[in-house]
Design a protein around this nucleic acid. Structure first.
Length: 578
DNA sequence: GCCGTTTTCGGCCCGACTGTTTTCAGTCG
């Protein structure tokens, strides 16, 4: 069993213990261990043998034994014993807002309900209200929750949530009582998907702002309405929370509501070690407030460098900030080139020249045009003849741009299918003619992991390939990526000096940021690519930059932060290896 | 279940809101 499978089992053990009503700190220990393993670099087996794993904070004697059992045998007797006590449908029920382990347990034990379907039926039959602690309101909320899960599984793409949060923030900020305000939560942290929007506001009086929020035309239903916190579901279907605090409390509240929860827990534990207490209203020594005028001041008061929101996942950022060793995160303006762009030659809708001018307007110096290769019949992929025709057009456009002194050059690229056996989609003499080759898997997604990994590793070893495109093929909220051993892929990319794509399309954001960080640590370069199919699509790069920052990348880790001359030299260096 | 420069036992982050209750448990972030 690999670490992710082990983590999944431990996480479920934690949840099962919650259902059983065990000591919450014991449950937390399992969840924490699962998270720890998920974020681990390297394999479990050697770390177990060397004792390295047992030395990790949060892994003690009991967990070491259980992890060992899982790695060695692929099973865990303790887990199976627990799982036999509860039907699997209870896990789905935990996804309904308002239902936690305690109430799910009651529903199961008193009514014998074990699936969401049965629960829905029971609500309609008015049976939930018979339980202690449940009433008509709870029953109605459960029904609404089930409906919401059915509608959209309760999560939204970052691109959607960001746009909604900007609009909502604009409306709230316009209220005359608002002093300071910000979008917080997972949107501020630039998570790839998000459940809701969090907005935090400071004001001397909260009531007027609360009232105005709940009456916004954008708001469909108000799900909570307190003195300082209100919740609503917007017409677009996404939920939003508004929190109002006094102005002196704003930095603490902004930090608190930005999260992540795990980051906050670790920060409060740090405060406690320093003899302080931290909550959303302040940082306190005894009764006395430690004044901070902004988030920078708050981090400084805890002996830390400022931690950019993207890094706040409790994955080492606090230790990094303490040691003054956080990376200087890449920004959009660091990027000099835009790669992986489709034109009307395959399945895009822009002319080559139009795309080049749009890219220049966004500040880029070079554009890697990469239409689909000949196997991609579905996307009007380029035959060898059409490749050569396209090269002639690129040369003509480049000549025009040069005369104009526009400072933009188009590179002759291709998005070549990686075929079943790991080879690229043209004979070598054609591949030789490209400046840039993005290799992507577009077929046979169902391959077993070992085969898929070998297929991709072989493509990375091909001297003609420049960049591995969307390395898992996932579609967020749509389809899981194909099975592939990403660490082996990353190592192969590092070994052959190839870049791995961070596909910036908001539905992909593939490579995932957790692995972006692994790539950086293992010495593989990243290319932040829009995979644009229209001139407007070039702007998707912004989403990729957010994900890159979440993966701790600096400009130096990103190949398209090289200027034109440097990038051409990087490409040329790859060619000489042929 | 984990952890320890006060501790090997007794802590473990903290508060708002809801719904159902007469004082609070459960959920959520």
């Amino acid at each position: 069993m690999d670490k992710h499978q082990v983590a999944e089992v431990l996480d479920e053990v934690g949840t099962l213990l919650e259902l059983r009503g065990e000591n919450p700190f014991k449950c937390r220990a399992y969840h924490a261990a699962a998270r720890l393993l998920d974020g681990l670099a390297g394999e479990l087996q050697p770390m177990l043998e060397s004792g390295e794993l047992a030395r990790l904070k949060g892994i003690g004697e009991a967990l070491t034994l259980k992890i060992t059992e899982l790695v060695k045998t692929g099973r865990l007797a303790y887990y199976e014993e627990l799982r036999a006590q509860f039907p699997p449908g209870l896990f789905d029920m935990l996804g309904i807002p308002g239902l936690g382990p305690k109430r799910v347990k009651v529903i199961y034990e008193k009514l014998g309900i074990a699936t969401i379907g049965e629960l829905e039926y029971a609500c309609r039959e008015n049976r939930l209200v018979t339980l202690d602690g449940f009433g008509a309101r709870s029953q109605q909320k459960v029904l609404e929750g089930i409906e919401r899960i059915r509608r959209n599984r309760g999560r939204f793409l970052f691109s959607f949530a960001e746009a909604e949060s900007i609009e909502l923030h604009r409306l709230i900020r316009a209220h005359p009582d608002v002093l300071r305000s910000a979008v917080a939560g997972s949107v501020r942290r630039r998570k790839e998907t998000t459940k809701d929007i969090d907005i935090v506001v400071s004001a001397e009086r909260a009531s007027g702002i609360m009232e105005a929020f709940t009456k916004l035309p954008l708001v469909e239903t108000v799900t909570g309405h307190g003195e300082t916190k209100s919740s609503a579901v917007l017409r677009s279907g996404i939920a939003a929370d508004l929190r109002v605090v006094r102005d002196a409390e704003f930095p603490y509240a902004l930090h608190h509501l930005t999260g992540s929860k795990e980051h906050n827990v670790a920060m409060r534990a740090r405060a406690q070690r320093l003899g302080l207490k931290m909550n959303e209203y302040g940082l306190f020594r005894g009764e006395e407030l430690v004044p901070c005028k902004d988030e920078e001041g708050l981090f400084a008061a805890l002996g830390l460098d400022f931690i950019p929101p993207e890094l706040r996942e409790d994955l080492g950022e606090i230790t990094g900030a303490e040691a003054r060793k956080l990376p200087r995160l890449v920004e959009r303006k660091d990027l000099r080139g835009v790669l992986h762009v489709h034109s009307r030659w395959s399945d895009g809708i822009g002319e080559i020249e139009e795309l080049a001018r749009a890219a220049r307007k966004l500040g880029y110096e070079y554009l890697g045009l990469t239409d689909h290769s000949q196997s991609a019949g579905y996307a009007n992929g380029l035959s060898v003849d059409r490749v050569q025709a396209q090269w002639r057009e690129i040369e003509a456009v480049n000549a025009r741009l040069l005369t104009e002194g526009l400072g933009m050059v188009i590179l002759k690229g291709i998005e070549s299918d990686i075929l079943r056996d790991g080879s690229l989609d043209y004979p070598d003499e054609v591949l030789e003619g490209f400046d840039l080759i993005v290799g992507s898997v577009h077929s046979l997604f169902g391959m077993p992991e070992a085969e898929m990994t070998a297929r991709i590793v072989k493509a990375l070893a091909n001297p003609y390939l420049t960049i591995l495109g969307h390395p898992t093929g996932r579609l967020l909220l749509g389809r899981d990526g194909y099975s592939v051993d990403l660490l082996r892929v990353i190592d192969a990319a590092a070994e052959h000096g190839k870049a791995i794509e961070l596909n910036a399309n908001p539905q992909r954001l593939d490579l995932d940021w957790r692995f972006v960080r692994q790539a950086r640590e293992r010495g593989a370069k990243i290319a932040i690519d829009p995979d644009a199919h229209t001139p407007d699509g070039l702007a998707d790069v912004d989403f990729g930059v957010g994900t890159a920052r979440k993966g701790w990348l600096e400009a130096g880790d990103v190949v398209n932060s090289l200027n034109k001359a440097e990038f051409l030299a990087w490409i040329a260096a790859r060619k000489t290896k042929r």
